[in-house]
Design a protein around this nucleic acid. Structure first.
Lengths: 145, 145
DNA sequence: CTTTGATTATTAGCTGGCTAATAATATATA
DNA sequence: TATATATTATTAGCCAGCTAATAATCAAAG
């Protein structure tokens, strides 16, 4: 059987190697990949509800809850109960979380650069296009982002 | 910043959705994605040493150790100490592990088919090529497989 | 006003990865 | 031979995901 010849297998292997490399680079800054996505989301709009962050990032509630708890421990964000709805919480960036922005954005661009040294500019565009198609396939057609 | 426009971000998102879908399909059979890769490896050559499986699959020793322990509990493989080197162990398929082959291979092909409905045949080939390049980038040039 | 149902967060526990640290064995070297 | 080094497996513990189950609150229906 051609297990190793399937796109599925290739994607799986590349994906874990990919995440591993990202984690290694982010470790120098002191954060993890799961926290990174949340930070980018909060830099876009601060004070989101936890459940909204979860659906935006397509993460299960327990996943984002755990990650946020870690970020609170690191002093990157705070969690505040809503006054008008005691079920919800809002997540706010701390000064520390705000100030990491420049460093992390720069690092992220470097990571992107580094990865793309394996591809030509044309290949990069094609890959972006194909991954976008797969994303829509997995997530369904989504308007924003 | 164009965080969402980076290939890195896209790949991360697609990868987690991808694995999630694979796990869901494999759950019907009763195995997990990590076990799948090992099974394919053992179907190719049975009785490998644990450390060789690890390097073949590019997994850290503790990772494959944990996964194999789970597979032993499921009755898919056995672990036997080597006679001439008490440090090493060899992993052997059980009858149950052997007999899952047909079902799993069929399922794997279905998963591949399903994923590729999002792409044309040409796109599939291109994606395979690009992922192969990334794999070599992450893993270094490797001859076999 | 009370009960039912939906929403939000949280806890517990699972797999897939990882690193660091141990323990046991082999091997090479003084 | 005795000591130092390398190899292999294993344990503990971490993060990224997940599902299932609870608890609390809000909203809606009776």
């Amino acid at each position: 059987m051609q297990f190793h010849q399937t796109v599925n297998h290739l994607l799986s292997r590349v994906a874990t190697a990919h995440r591993s490399r990202i984690e290694k680079r982010l470790a120098a800054i002191g954060i993890h990949s799961g926290q990174l996505a949340i930070l980018f989301e909060l830099w876009k709009t601060d004070g989101r509800r936890q459940v909204d962050l979860a659906s935006e990032l397509r993460l299960a509630p327990p996943t984002i809850n755990k990650t946020l708890t870690g970020m609170i421990d690191l002093g990157l964000v705070t969690r505040e109960r809503l006054e008008d709805d005691a079920r919800s919480t809002r997540i706010f960036l701390t000064d520390a979380g705000e100030q990491m922005r420049q460093v992390i954005e720069a690092e992220w661009l470097e990571i992107e650069e580094e990865m793309l040294t394996a591809l030509t500019e044309t290949e990069r565009l094609i890959l972006f296009d194909l991954l976008t198609k797969l994303k829509h396939f997995y997530f369904g057609t989504e308007p924003e982002e």
